[in-house]
Design a protein around this nucleic acid. Structure first.
Lengths: 215, 215
DNA sequence: CCTTTTGTGTACCGTTCGGTACAAATTGCT
DNA sequence: AGCAATTTGTACCGAACGGTACACAAAAGG
């Protein structure tokens, strides 16, 4: 009793991928269901049968985005030997993603619904929550650095996470405005120069008197 | 021959101000003309008679935003005694604006149309151009710092401007997510810690060997 | 073969969109 | 007063919106 009835004539994942690209490019409000159906190569009833409604389709598309595009970011954030190197590499991974000429500019989670009408506030909040999760990922990685000894114990992980999350969001806007990979990597470079100060505000005024916080 | 015909029964500027607030909150796509008319306290024919169409109304609203909210930013950017202090103060002015609980979160020019359908691409490009102007303002202030001697001659003003413009955009997203003034000011503080490196990449690895660049 | 189950395409639903026709109302000018 | 110019409110326009009814097609199970 595995498959009853007429089989689906399209690849659900492929269709979802195309929907994701369209939402990413045009935003939630800027993408109509008719446009989606056309881009997905199906008719609207097929779309609704497979994805329930526009809003759920969007959530599925965001989940796919996180799996397809967010994976390398999270990997890089875990893989780096120190919190500093991990955060830097994670930002560089995203810089390359946001500026990829084969893809819509910037991060889908930032650009696709920043301001919406109150009817779609759930969508905006959903993305806002996802952004908070990204910030939390930065924070946890820095806290891990404290636990592992490569970040000073008195570090303000939450504050540093907010800083790097903001940098990442700014990179998305910049990418939307046509900034290239080089420009975004320069921004990352600048942000990483503030590491010591951001991680230990008040202790390190500026610059780093000593990098050997490691081990 | 100054005023013929029936006089307008509403204050055009007040109405535009209310439209600006609504666009700022909900974005271009998320704001309908009916909502606008209601918020402005007028009927649609009055709206169209006074502002031509939705798109032109939006442009007028953005211009008002720049006059009302962008003024203090530009002033601070010019007023600071050094480029460094001016950029820092300008960012702090915007941090307070973006987190003002009396106003919609973030910068209108960033949040109100990042991703739209192709029909409204002109709106997106208009805002993108305005963001470029803000970046140019940063660049010119830093170049002025070079001319006045408070910034080293070999400084990369364009790169630094891109960095601080990105920070500013990131602050808008963060403000939309509910970040308060304190959080945004901490981000500014972090960004300013990178000043020397950002202004002279490759020369100053990190930190500032000397702050007495002033005069 | 026949029923059940599910997907497909057409053609449509009510609502909202941006925008306007039109007649009444209110002013300045002569 | 009469005319020209302009705004106002009502009521409406065609188009696009998100979503669906329905008849038909294609598969599995009996």
């Amino acid at each position: 009793m595995v498959e009853r009835g007429r089989p689906r004539a399209f690849d659900r994942n492929e269709a979802l991928h195309r929907a994701m690209r369209l939402f990413w490019t045009r935003g939630y409000d800027g993408t109509s269901v008719s446009d989606l159906a056309e881009a997905m190569g199906i008719n609207k009833p097929s779309l609704y049968a497979a994805f329930q409604c526009k809003e759920k389709l969007f959530y599925d598309a965001v989940a796919l985005y996180e799996r397809e595009e967010g994976g390398k970011f999270l990997e890089a954030l875990q893989a780096g030997p120190t919190a500093r190197e991990a955060v830097g590499e994670a930002l560089r991974v995203n810089a390359r993603l946001f500026a990829d000429p084969q893809k819509p500019g910037g991060c889908m989670i930032v650009v696709s619904a920043l301001a919406t009408d109150p009817d779609h506030d759930a969508v905006r909040c959903f993305l806002s929550g996802n952004r908070s999760e990204a910030e939390a990922a930065y924070r946890k990685r820095i806290e891990r650095g404290v636990a592992e000894g490569d970040v000073p114990a008195q570090a303000d992980a939450a504050r540093a996470a907010a800083f790097y999350a903001a940098i990442q969001a700014g990179m998305s806007v910049h990418a939307r405005d046509g900034a290239g990979e080089r420009s975004l990597l320069e921004i990352v470079d600048g942000a990483m120069a503030a590491w010591d100060h951001v991680v230990m505000p008040g202790i390190v005024d500026n610059g780093r008197p000593d990098e050997t916080g490691r081990s």
